[in-house]
Every structure is written in structure tokens, then in C-alpha cells.
């Protein structure tokens, strides 16, 4: 008997969230099929790749990365360089220096950097906070105001600070936010419900479901992402139909494989190659699990993941 494929497109679809403005704007989500299942129905927007830069600059001990950013010192210069990396759809500025336990750069300085980066970036911009809920809330409010009209994505609003960020960034200035939970499927839904109860529509929010590097408890984030996508499509759960973003850089570059020196493990080969490989594996696996966008650090990773996406879709 001949095989007759039965397409399994769902009646429900993911919301579509647009970041950036003008011709370079990118749309995330919108599809009504499982991740990469383009044989069931056309995938409205292919997964997007963001490239991360830090306000503290790149790790110049990695030769390839140092060469890529050679001559670029300010965040704006780094951003311009990152935007030119093959495969990059958007740039993500990580305000690492704002961390109160680190350099504790003040809000006004951070806003100035964001403005310069936005000016220098031909691609859409995401801004990642320092991780301190209090500092990020203060930062995002001012950044949202300063970058009005640029339609930036702010990462992230968490349970502790979502109210101020959602109202200031989305309601007042029309920016987009990521709702961040850490590998907790019920909290992911709850946070979306709470944000929607502030009157914010699903096309202004993406979900950051948590992160871990491949091989380091990755199955938890993979199954969480999987379950979210199934709830969104098979159960038509409007509280989980937001696209998923996976910033994998920080985790991928902090595990043993990415940090141990070649002197200690000569058989492992160069550190930089290993770090990029960890990042590529993690980002690819997140796309297979249902991420609509990934954020990576190394230009080699951006190129490899973009090539994978093009080959599959």
C-alpha cells in the first residue's frame, strides 16, 4: 500500500512577535506546526539567530573572536561588527557591566550605551539585563523610553519585576519583552497570565523558558519547551502561544568543555573551537525543541546555526 502522509497542522498557531523597525525588522513565531515540521504546513517565520555582545567587550583571549572584533572597542563598534556577521538576524547587547556585584555601571551610562548601539546597528536590537531584578527593572524603564520607536526586545521580565517592566516598556513605550522563568512550566504560564492581566497582548511578549548547555540538564529545558509548544498548539492554550527565545551563550560558554585550557586537556583541542561547538549544539537542540530565536556569542556559531536552519527549511 502506498504511504499517504497526513499533514498535522494545528488549528491554533503561535503569536507573531516583531522586533526592530523598518526593513530589517524580524518576526518570531506565527507557525501552526511542531518545530521544523515544515512538511505539515509552511513555517511562517524561520527561527532567527541573534548575536550577543557585552558592554564589557569580547573575550579577546580567544584568537578567532579577537580577530573578528579587532579594532572595535566601544559597544557601538562591536555591535556594528556583530551585525555584519554572516547568519545574524539581530544583535543582543548584554549589559554585563550593570551588575551591582560587578562594575555596577549606572543607569544613565547604560542608557547612553544602548542609544549608541542602536544607532550603530542596522539590525534589530535586543537588550539583555544584568540579571539583578531590581537593577534590570530600573534599567529597562529608561532604556524603553530612550529607544522609543526602535521596537527593541528587553530580556527579561521575571516574577519579581515583571509589573514595572511590562508597564513601562510595553504599555508606555511600545517595546517588546521576554517573560523569563527558569525551567518551570507552570511558572512560565503563570507569568504570561499575569502579564496579560496587565492588558498586554500576546504579540508583545516572548518566552524565555530558562537555559542550560547541552549535556548539563538540557533535557529539562528541552521537555519544558516541548510541552509549551504542545499546549500552545494541541490544547490551544492562549497563555502559552508566545514565541520562545533561547539565549544560550552564557551557559554554553561557562561549562567545562568551553573553559578548560588546552594545556590541561591537549586531547580536547583549542578552547575556542570547543566553546563554539557547545554553543552550536545547544542552539541547534533548542531550535529542534521549539525555540523561535536563539542568541549565540561566537560568529562561527551564528553562521553554523543559520546554515542549519537554511538547510532544514
Amino acid at each position: 500500500m502506498p504511504f499517504a502522509p497526513v499533514p498535522q497542522a494545528f488549528k491554533s498557531s503561535l503569536k507573531e512577535v516583531v522586533i526592530g523597525a523598518g526593513e530589517s525588522a524580524v518576526a518570531l513565531g506565527g507557525e501552526n506546526v511542531l518545530p521544523l515540521y515544515s512538511f505539515d504546513a509552511p513555517i511562517k517565520n524561520r527561527p532567527k539567530v541573534g548575536i550577543e555582545i557585552s558592554d564589557l567587550g569580547p573575550d579577546r583571549s580567544l584568537p578567532e573572536l579577537a580577530k573578528f572584533y579587532e579594532g572595535a572597542s566601544s559597544a557601538a563598534e562591536l555591535a556594528a561588527r556583530a551585525c555584519a556577521a554572516p547568519g545574524a538576524d539581530f544583535v543582543c547587547l548584554w549589559l554585563e557591566g550593570a551588575d551591582p556585584n560587578g562594575e555596577d555601571r549606572d543607569v544613565a551610562d547604560c542608557v547612553k550605551i544602548c542609544r549608541e548601539v542602536a544607532e550603530a546597528s542596522p539590525l534589530p536590537l535586543a537588550v539583555q539585563g544584568c540579571g539583578s531584578p531590581d537593577k534590570d527593572a530600573r534599567l529597562f524603564e529608561k532604556i524603553a523610553e530612550a529607544l522609543q520607536g526602535r521596537n527593541v526586545l528587553l530580556l527579561s521580565a521575571k516574577e519579581e519585576n515583571y509589573k514595572g517592566i511590562a508597564v513601562a516598556a510595553v504599555t508606555a513605550y511600545g517595546q517588546k519583552i521576554a517573560a523569563e522563568s527558569s525551567v518551570d512550566i507552570n511558572l512560565a504560564k503563570q507569568l504570561n497570565v499575569l502579564i496579560s492581566q496587565l492588558g498586554i497582548a500576546g504579540d508583545s511578549t516572548v518566552m524565555h523558558l530558562g537555559a542550560s548547555a547541552a549535556g548539563y540538564g538540557f533535557e529539562y529545558i528541552a521537555s519544558t519547551t516541548d510541552r509549551v509548544r504542545l499546549a500552545a498548539l494541541a490544547q490551544n492554550d492562549a497563555a502559552l502561544q508566545m514565541p520562545v527565545i533561547a539565549p544560550v551563550a552564557a551557559d554554553a560558554w561557562s561549562v567545562k568543555e568551553s573553559v578548560m585550557s588546552e594545556d590541561e586537556f591537549p586531547e580536547w583541542g583549542p578552547v575556542e573551537r570547543r566553546g563554539a561547538d557547545m554553543e552550536i549544539c545547544t542552539a541547534s537542540a533548542m531550535i529542534a525543541a521549539g525555540a523561535n530565536a536563539v542568541i549565540v556569542r561566537h560568529p562561527r556559531s551564528a553562521a553554523a546555526v543559520a546554515e542549519l536552519i537554511s538547510a532544514l527549511l
Binding site: 507552570n186 504560564k189 497570565v193 492581566q197 499546549a231
Partner: peptide, 12 residues
């Protein structure tokens, strides 16, 4: 298990 649990499930 017809819908995913969230603390605000009674409100939605």
C-alpha cells in the same frame, strides 16, 4: 491534564 496548571488558573 486538559490544560496546563498555573496559579491563576481560576482567572482564565
Amino acid at each position: 491534564n486538559n490544560t496546563l496548571y498555573a496559579d491563576s488558573f481560576l482567572d482564565i
